Amino acid sequence: MTLTLTVPPGAKVRVRITNENGETTEIEVEPGETVTITLPAGSTVRVEVEVVDPDGRKRTETFTLKP
């Protein structure tokens, strides 16, 4: 399973991925970048995406991906 994120110009994104064992991976994606994350097959993962807009506003979306 893959997750692809494209960050709009001016925004910053931090992604936290937590697996079933509670292990967390965190990455930051710079403005204008596209990143593809390969998620472990057969695992349920929690993905938290934090977006910081150019004006400093933050918003966070959290979702769970199941196999």
Rank of each mutant, 00 (worst) to 15 (best):
T38M: 08
A41V: 06
P67C: 15
A41T: 09
E20P: 05
E26H: 06
E48M: 04
I17L: 10
P54C: 12
R59M: 02
P8C: 14
T6S: 07
L5I: 06
R14D: 08
I27D: 08
E26L: 04
F63W: 05
E23Q: 07
L3D: 01
E48K: 02
T4L: 10
T25S: 05
V47E: 00
T36M: 12
R46C: 05
T24F: 07
T2W: 15
I17C: 11
E30H: 09
T25I: 10
P31M: 10
G42A: 13
E30C: 09
F63T: 15
R46W: 06
S43I: 13
I37Q: 12
V15Y: 08
E23I: 09
A41N: 09
V13I: 03
T44Y: 12
V35T: 07
L39H: 04
D53A: 03
R57L: 03
E26K: 06
T64E: 15
P54Q: 09
G22N: 12
T6D: 14
T38N: 07
V45K: 02
G32M: 14
T62W: 12
A41Y: 13
T44L: 09
V35W: 14
R59L: 03
K58M: 04
G42K: 08
V45I: 07
G32C: 10
T34N: 11
L5P: 01
P31R: 11
T64Y: 15
P31W: 08
V13S: 05
G42D: 11
T64G: 00
T24C: 11
G10N: 09
T4M: 11
S43V: 11
V13L: 02
E50H: 03
V29G: 04
V35P: 08
A11L: 00
G32T: 13
K66S: 15
E30S: 05
V51F: 11
T25E: 07
T60V: 10
G42S: 13
A41H: 08
V52C: 05
P67T: 14
E26M: 04
D53R: 01
D55M: 03
A11G: 07
G22A: 07
G10S: 08
P31L: 15
V15F: 05
T18K: 04
L5M: 12
M1T: 03
D55S: 04
A41S: 10
R57W: 02
N21M: 07
T60A: 00
I27N: 12
T25Q: 09
K12G: 05
V15Q: 03
L3N: 02
F63V: 15
E30Y: 05
A11P: 01
I37K: 13
R57G: 02
D53V: 00
T36D: 08
K66V: 15
A11D: 03
P67L: 15
P54I: 05
T64W: 15
S43R: 15
N19I: 14
V13A: 06
T34K: 12
R57M: 03
T38H: 06
R46N: 04
E61Q: 08
L39A: 13
T4V: 09
I17D: 02
E48I: 04
F63L: 08
P9M: 06
E26N: 06
V47S: 00
E26C: 05
K58W: 02
I27K: 09
I17T: 12
P54Y: 04
F63A: 13
R59A: 01
T24L: 05
V45Q: 05
E26G: 07
A41Q: 06
P31S: 06
P9L: 04
E50G: 00
P40D: 09
P8D: 13
E50Q: 04
V13H: 00
R46S: 03
T36R: 10
I37N: 15
T44K: 02
V52D: 01
K12D: 11
T36Y: 13
K12N: 10
D55T: 02
V52R: 04
T62K: 02
E28N: 08
V47K: 00
K12V: 07
G10H: 05
R14A: 11
I17N: 10
D55L: 02
T24P: 07
G32V: 15
P67H: 14
G32Y: 13
E50K: 01
K12A: 11
E26T: 05
G56T: 00
K58E: 00
E61G: 01
P54G: 04
G32L: 07
R16Y: 05
E30F: 07
T24N: 06
G56D: 00
G32Q: 13
L3K: 02
T6A: 10
E23T: 07
P9F: 09
T44Q: 04
T18V: 13
T34F: 13
S43T: 10
G10M: 11
V45L: 13
R16E: 03
I37E: 12
T4G: 05
V47G: 07
R57S: 09
D55E: 02
T60M: 03
A11Q: 01
T18F: 13
V29E: 14
